[in-house]
Amino acid sequence: MTQNSDRASQAIELLGQQKLELSDRDREEIIERIRPTALIIHETIRIEGESELCRPVSALAWSGLAAGLSMGFSLVAQGVLQANLPQQSWSSIIVSLGYSIGFVIVVMGRQQLFTENTLTVILPLLNDRRRKVFMRVLRLWAIVLASNLLGAFIFASIVAQAGVFPPEFQTAFGEIGLRVIDGGFWITLLRAIFAGWLIALMVWLLPAAESSQLWVIVIITSLVGLGEFPHIIAGSVEVFYAVAIKAVSWPEYFGKFMIPTLIGNILGGVTLVASLNHAQVAQDDL
C-alpha cells in the first residue's frame, strides 16, 4: 500500500504548488478521485486469492456448484432472445447480451467460477512460489472445475427435458450447442485463449470499477459471446444440452470442446493477464 500513499502524498504536494484557492474538502475529493495504481489492484486481487486458497473443500464445492447452475441462465437467455428476434444481422448483438446473464449472477453473487481463478489464485502463487501454494492452487482448480461442470450438466439435463421450455426455445438451445463445437481442435484452443484473456481482464478491472462493476461484467462477457470465444463453463452448459438431446456425442464434447477450451482458457488467463500484470507490479517495486 506504500505506492498508493506515495501517490497521495505527491498529489497533495502538487496541489500545494498550485496557486489555486482550494478548500480542504476540495483537496480530499481530488485525492479520492485518483485512480488506484496497478499495485493496489494487484494486491486487492492477491489478498482475495489468498482467502480463497484457505477455504474448506465443502465451501468451494458448493460455491462452484452454484456457479455451474447459474451459468445455465446464459444458455436460457440466449435461446429465448434468439427464438424471439428476427433473423437480422444485428440480432447476434442482442443475443450476446443474454450470454452475460450467467456471468452477472456468478460474479455479483460471489460464486466460484473456474476462469476467474486463472487470475485470482495465480497472483498468490506468483508472489509465493513454494510447492505448498502450488498444491493449494491445484486443489482449488480441481474442486471448482469439477463442481462447475457438475452444475452445468445438471442444469442442461433439466432444460433438455421435454416440456420445460417451448419447442422454439429448445430448437434455439440446440443450435447454440452445435455452434459451440463448430471448429477444429486448434481453432477452438486459440479462440478459447481470447475467452480466458477477457474473463481474467474482467476480474482485473473490477476492483477499480466500483459502482460500474455491472457494466464491466456485461460489456466484457458480451464480447466473449459475440466473438463466440469458447468458455469452459458457459460453453459446457450449451454442449451438455446438445449431448442430452443426442445431437452431440460424449467423445465430441471432450475432444472438440472441453480439452481445447480448458487449455485455451488457462493459457489466456494465466499467461496474458496474471503473469503480465504481476510482472509490471514486480518491476515497479525494483
Rank of each mutant, 00 (worst) to 15 (best):
residue 4 N to T: 13
residue 8 A to Q: 07
residue 9 S to L: 14
residue 12 I to P: 03
residue 13 E to Y: 09
residue 18 Q to I: 03
residue 21 E to A: 03
residue 25 R to W: 11
residue 26 D to N: 13
residue 27 R to C: 10
residue 30 I to L: 10
residue 31 I to S: 00
residue 32 E to N: 11
residue 35 R to W: 10
residue 37 T to S: 12
residue 43 E to W: 00
residue 45 I to L: 04
residue 47 I to V: 14
residue 61 A to Q: 01
residue 61 A to S: 06
residue 62 W to Q: 12
residue 67 A to N: 02
residue 71 M to V: 02
residue 75 L to V: 07
residue 82 Q to Y: 07
residue 90 W to R: 15
residue 94 I to W: 12
residue 105 I to Q: 09
residue 105 I to E: 05
residue 125 L to R: 09
residue 129 R to I: 07
residue 138 L to C: 14
residue 141 W to V: 00
residue 142 A to C: 01
residue 143 I to T: 13
residue 146 A to E: 08
residue 147 S to L: 14
residue 149 L to A: 03
residue 150 L to T: 10
residue 152 A to V: 09
residue 156 A to F: 03
residue 159 V to P: 06
residue 169 F to C: 14
residue 178 L to F: 07
residue 179 R to I: 05
residue 185 F to E: 10
residue 188 T to V: 09
residue 188 T to L: 04
residue 192 A to H: 01
residue 192 A to L: 04
residue 193 I to V: 11
residue 194 F to D: 03
residue 196 G to P: 04
residue 196 G to F: 00
residue 197 W to L: 01
residue 200 A to S: 14
residue 201 L to Q: 12
residue 202 M to P: 00
residue 206 L to S: 05
residue 213 Q to F: 00
residue 221 T to E: 03
residue 222 S to P: 09
residue 230 P to M: 15
residue 233 I to R: 01
residue 233 I to Q: 03
residue 234 A to Y: 07
residue 235 G to C: 08
residue 235 G to S: 05
residue 239 V to M: 06
residue 239 V to A: 08
residue 240 F to G: 01
residue 240 F to C: 07
residue 244 A to M: 07
residue 249 S to H: 08
residue 251 P to Q: 03
residue 252 E to I: 08
residue 257 F to R: 11
residue 274 A to E: 11
residue 275 S to D: 12
residue 275 S to N: 14
residue 279 A to F: 03
